[in-house]
Computed example of a mutant assay.
Amino acid sequence: MIKIGITGQNGFVGSSLYNTLGLYPDEFQRIDFHKEFFENSGQLDDFVRQCDVIVHLAAMNRHPDPEVIYENNIGLVKKLTESLERTASTAHVLFSSSSQEERDNLYGKSKKEGREFLAYWAKNNGGKFTGMIIPNVFGPFGQPNYNSFIATFCHKLTHGENPVIDNDGEVKLIYVGDLVQEMIGQIRSGETNEEYSVPHRTTIKVSEVLSKLENFKKRYFDGGEIPELKTDFDYQLFNTFRCYFDLKNHYPVKFTQHTDPRGAFVEVIRLGIGGQCSFSTTVPGITRGNHFHTRKIERFAVIKGKALIQLRKIGTDEVLDFYLDGAEPAYVDMPIWYTHNIKNIGEDDLYTIFWINEPYNPEDADTYFVEV
């Protein structure tokens, strides 16, 4: 069992790494970190002593004064290094640097010097060190106007604002899930690599990204249609976009119901992609689900009976309740990293249609059971 601590555990990359490590409970044990540890040497030392691996992600990305960024980031590296020395730790330290190392700015300078500082510690104290030089990262739950221009675009498009492109250059991107797998690979290898340039997965112009996101807004956010997704990047961008909805106000989405003397007709889902569609009946009082996905796209459509659909983001306590009634057919889509369930709260059988974008594969189910 490898004991792993993450500084910046609650940040964009940190929370994704923390949650993903939780999918391997037989291999990794997570040692919780709190940012207050940096202000208390005793608590920081206790944290360091417990760790076989420390992933140092805590850093400042943006501030009106670049000097503040530089001093903050170098200061955090020094505090961690001093703790490593006080505790005589020989941990494997992974450090997240940035492709901005090569730029003439204080953020890039803080990252390069921090990487070199920790490499020197490892070389002289019997530790191991991996300095990861990372391209632009995007993915679900990034902070708008801070972590990524994609986060900013997604938030604006789902909150009634219009994104503006400041510089339409080409960007090299990596999805946060792919970056996390790179980190886990380095942890498993247990080898020193002072300057590891993490390969980007996509090169694309900012305007092309915005065009894709505007298509998602038109087809999916406004129209409920699952758009055509041709590449891994399309899937990753779409799942990122879905995570910026104001879920409480967006769901449940009522269907357009057409009635005539024969009965009623409802279009449940319009697809630019395939997948698997299922139908279920649920007797009163029974709950289905209580699981989450990290990549799958899923829709629950209630067409008869009364249901309570509940969602909870992994790592949080807030439970979102959505009440649906087949008298007014409606659906709720499941964001990734949200555990979800559906319960029959009526007196009659509940009729539900489930759609998911890929057929069930028991060898790669992407289905993790956690109570809402």
Results as ranks from 00 to 15, higher is better:
1 M>T: 15
3 K>C: 10
5 G>C: 04
9 Q>N: 12
15 S>C: 07
23 L>S: 02
25 P>N: 13
29 Q>E: 14
31 I>Q: 03
32 D>Y: 15
33 F>E: 00
39 E>G: 13
39 E>P: 00
45 D>H: 03
49 R>Y: 12
53 V>A: 11
56 H>R: 03
67 E>P: 04
73 N>C: 11
74 I>L: 13
85 E>I: 15
87 T>L: 03
87 T>I: 05
89 S>E: 10
91 A>W: 00
97 S>L: 09
97 S>C: 08
99 S>G: 11
99 S>I: 15
103 R>K: 15
106 L>E: 01
108 G>K: 04
115 R>P: 08
121 W>H: 05
124 N>Y: 11
124 N>F: 14
126 G>L: 02
126 G>R: 02
131 G>N: 03
138 F>S: 04
138 F>E: 01
147 N>P: 10
153 F>I: 13
153 F>C: 00
157 L>F: 06
159 H>V: 07
160 G>W: 06
167 N>G: 08
172 K>L: 04
176 V>H: 02
177 G>E: 01
177 G>H: 08
194 E>N: 05
197 S>T: 14
198 V>G: 03
205 K>P: 10
216 F>D: 06
226 I>V: 15
227 P>Q: 03
228 E>P: 01
231 T>L: 04
235 Y>N: 07
236 Q>F: 07
236 Q>I: 00
238 F>A: 06
242 R>K: 14
246 D>Q: 13
246 D>M: 03
249 N>W: 11
254 K>I: 12
256 T>L: 10
260 D>H: 10
263 G>P: 07
264 A>I: 06
273 I>A: 11
283 V>C: 03
288 R>Q: 04
295 R>N: 02
300 F>A: 11
301 A>Y: 01
303 I>D: 05
308 L>M: 12
318 E>Y: 10
322 F>P: 04
326 G>V: 13
330 A>M: 08
331 Y>L: 05
334 M>A: 12
340 H>C: 04
341 N>L: 12
342 I>L: 15
349 D>G: 05
349 D>M: 14
350 L>T: 12
359 P>Y: 07
362 P>E: 14
362 P>K: 06
364 D>G: 11
366 D>P: 07
367 T>W: 11
368 Y>G: 00
371 E>Q: 14
